[in-house]
């Protein structure tokens, strides 16, 4: 009995102590773009992408492969001796998982093309190809631009995510809080 109550207490504390992904107006996943090992801006793109992912996780917004994909590209430049970071965040609405599943079931990737062998392995590859392909697709919803000094990375990311959440709250039938 005591064990059962303790277990329930732990679950209740876990539920109320952290931000709940499902209660947020938007769920995001984050990907940063670099052009390979010789990309001079690869490191800063990764740093900004990781900062956004970390802040999104703290706010309970992070949900891999669902909702809104943030494609991040960042570059460092210098102006009159001072460095600044220039960022583009491409907000992409992903295809709902239910449609991806249906597309995989019907193997739509091979539509109009000769089908590979009709074996269990062939079917698995055809379905996985469809799933992975459709998961890479999305509608570009908005591109946000940020410019800030390198030391202001966390503040810039925090302000951006606040603005993002506010925008999505305003898109609900209840409107802006």
């Amino acid at each position: 009995m005591v064990r059962c109550l303790s277990f329930l207490l732990v679950i209740i504390i876990a539920a109320v102590s952290g931000p709940n992904v499902l209660s947020q107006p938007v769920q995001v996943s984050v990907r940063w773009m670099d052009e390979g090992p010789d990309d001079p801006h690869g490191t800063i793109s990764a740093d900004v992408g990781k900062a956004i992912r970390s802040e999104a996780s703290l706010r309970g917004l992070l949900a891999e492969q669902h909702g809104l994909l943030l494609n991040v590209r960042a570059e460092t430049h210098a102006s009159t001796g001072a460095e600044f970071v220039m960022v583009s965040i491409v907000e992409t609405m992903l295809i709902p998982e239910s449609i991806i599943e249906a597309g995989a079931k019907h193997e739509i990737w091979y539509a109009g093309k000769p089908l590979p062998e009709n074996t269990a392995e062939g079917r698995a590859i055809r379905q996985y190809v469809t799933r992975d392909y459709l998961r890479s697709q999305g509608r570009v919803h908005r591109v946000s631009q940020l410019v800030f000094a390198p030391g202001d990375l966390n503040r810039a990311v925090s302000t951006y995510l606040e603005e993002l959440v506010h925008r999505f709250e305003c898109m609900t039938p209840e409107g802006c809080p």
């Binding site: 494609n71 590209r73 583009s88 491409v90 709902p96 239910s98 449609i99 599943e101 249906a102 597309g103 019907h106 739509i108 990737w109 539509a111 109009g112 093309k113 392909y133 697709q137 570009v140 591109v143 631009q145």
Partner: peptide, 26 residues
Amino acid sequence: SIVEGIRIPKNIVSSGVRHQLNKMGG
């Protein structure tokens, strides 16, 4: 900001229409 994208091929969209994928989304 320039986003370089590759569009879904028409044959895949047509197949999606044929299989009525829109009815799978709720």
